[in-house]
Structure formats: structure tokens, C-alpha cells
């Protein structure tokens, strides 16, 4: 039987000096396991609270970004849209909508064709929240959530557009893991202040907005951060993707045509 064998084996193991190789290995394993369990429990149990904190910060940041960009902190209303059709939908609550989870779930997301996936997303949710302010029936402010791959992380932010749907009112990032001191400087208000007033597309409707290497010229270009070329490219790509036909393009068309009302 294995019982007595196990016991004698255990006795022999116990009798080993603490610095023997088997005991050292066993101890290392036990410490690693213990540490992993403690850290995992803490992370998993606290995650909902941390997410709620990030959510609160996100809400506060939208208002902060908008008030900075256009000099007032008026009301914004959250709507949910179907990205493919660009129509408003009332089936999903935009405040509790989790874009990250929805993009991972095959039932609530679609695969992006590789050639069109400039932002490196793989999949995107079928729906997205938008934050709008209307003056009568006319939209005066459009806030769109945008995200995409930067140099070494996914960059999350909000793009605010003026009522024409083509002039940037502000761009603010709230979550990224780029290189501290280089790419992470996209979080700095000084850099984000370069965006208001820039144009997205030219008269033919071609998206021209981009982060440049070197000095920016014209109404479509924004100065990149020195040493963070790939983060800058990531910002360009995520804007181009989300403003394109697979992103908010259909919605913006409908908004411009006056089809979408409060």
C-alpha cells in the first residue's frame, strides 16, 4: 500500500536538514504558492471597487475634458449606438456598458478585417456609448470613446468633436501603459491642449488627422512627442479607425444629416 510508504517518505523528508536541496525546493515552491494565492485573492476581490473608481474618474474626466476644451461644463447625455448602422439603440444602458468585456465576448462583438484593423484591436464591440449635447435639435458637442494599440499598451481616451462633426473640441486619454516619460506623456494636459481646433477630414471626406514626427503643419497635424513616435502613430491609427467606416463613421454621417435627435 502507498500509505506507509508515503509516511516513511514524509518522515525522511522531515528529517532532512533545512538547507538540503529537496527542502530548499519544497520551501521555494510553498512560498511561491502562498504568495500567489494571497496576491490573487487581493486582486480578484478588490477589482470591482477599483473598476468603480476608474469609472468615476472616467465620468469626471469627460466633464473636465469638455469644460477645458470648450470653456464650460454644461450637461452631456449618454446614448448607446449600434456601430454598424450608426443608429441609436435603447437596449443597452450606456453608463454600465463595459466596452472591454463586450469586445471580448463573441456574442457582442465582431471581428475586424485585418486590412482595416489599423488600431490593432482584433475585435470590437457591436455597440458603443456616445455622449452628446444638443442645442435644440442640433448637436453642439459629440464625445466618442476611442481606444487602440500604442507602442506597448492599449490607449483609452475620449475624443470630443464640435457640432460639425469634423472639428476637434478636445482629446483626453485616461488609461495607457506607454513608456513613462516618453509615450506616457500623451496624458499631459500640455500635449492634449494641442488638439482643440484641429480638423479630422478634408473637403473630399478623406481622414487627414494625424500625429506627425517633426513639426506639425496645417489644420490636420499635431506635433508628436519626441522619442514616442510609435505611441504617436498609435494615436493616429486609433483616431483613423474609430472615425472610419468600421468605427463611428456611420453614426457621424447620420448625425450630420440631422437624423439623430435628442
Amino acid at each position: 500500500m502507498a500509505g506507509p510508504d508515503m509516511i516513511s517518505w514524509w518522515r525522511r523528508f522531515r528529517a532532512l536538514p533545512k538547507d538540503s536541496t529537496p527542502k530548499t525546493l519544497a520551501f521555494a515552491l510553498a512560498v511561491a504558492l502562498g504568495a500567489a494565492i494571497v496576491v490573487s485573492i487581493a486582486t480578484v476581490t478588490l477589482r470591482p471597487l477599483q473598476k468603480a473608481n476608474l469609472e468615476r474618474e472616467r465620468q469626471a474626466r469627460i466633464v473636465a475634458m469638455v469644460s477645458r476644451a470648450i470653456g464650460d461644463s454644461g450637461p452631456l447625455t449618454a446614448y448607446m449606438i449600434d456601430l454598424n448602422s450608426g443608429r441609436l439603440t435603447r437596449d443597452i444602458d450606456p453608463v454600465t456598458f463595459d466596452a472591454e468585456a463586450a469586445a471580448k465576448n463573441p456574442a457582442t462583438s465582431v471581428a475586424i478585417p485585418q486590412a482595416a484593423d489599423v488600431a490593432g484591436l482584433g475585435r470590437r464591440a457591436k455597440h458603443a456609448p456616445v455622449f452628446l449635447r444638443f442645442d435644440g435639435d442640433k448637436p453642439v458637442l459629440i464625445v466618442l470613446p476611442v481606444y487602440g494599440k500604442g507602442y506597448q499598451s492599449t490607449i483609452w481616451g475620449y475624443l470630443a468633436l464640435k457640432g460639425d462633426g469634423n472639428t476637434i473640441a478636445g482629446l483626453s486619454f485616461f488609461k495607457q501603459g506607454e513608456t513613462p516619460g516618453l509615450g506616457a506623456r500623451i496624458m499631459e494636459p500640455a500635449w492634449q491642449a494641442l488638439w482643440p481646433g484641429k480638423q479630422l477630414a478634408d473637403d473630399t471626406g478623406t481622414l487627414r488627422v494625424q500625429v506627425t514626427k517633426g513639426s506639425a503643419k496645417g489644420p490636420y497635424e499635431v506635433d508628436g512627442i519626441t522619442g514616442a513616435t510609435r505611441t504617436g502613430n498609435g494615436v493616429t491609427n486609433l483616431l483613423r479607425f474609430w472615425l472610419g467606416d468600421l468605427g463611428f463613421g456611420p453614426f457621424l454621417k447620420r448625425l450630420k444629416s440631422g437624423e439623430i435627435r435628442p
Binding site: A42, T43, L46, L49, Q50, N53, R56, E57
Partner: peptide, 8 residues
């Protein structure tokens, strides 16, 4: 993690 949850 505790600080991130309770003293964000």
C-alpha cells in the same frame, strides 16, 4: 491593490 480600491 487596497489603496487603489479604497484610496484611489
Amino acid at each position: 491593490e487596497v489603496l487603489k480600491a479604497y484610496a484611489f
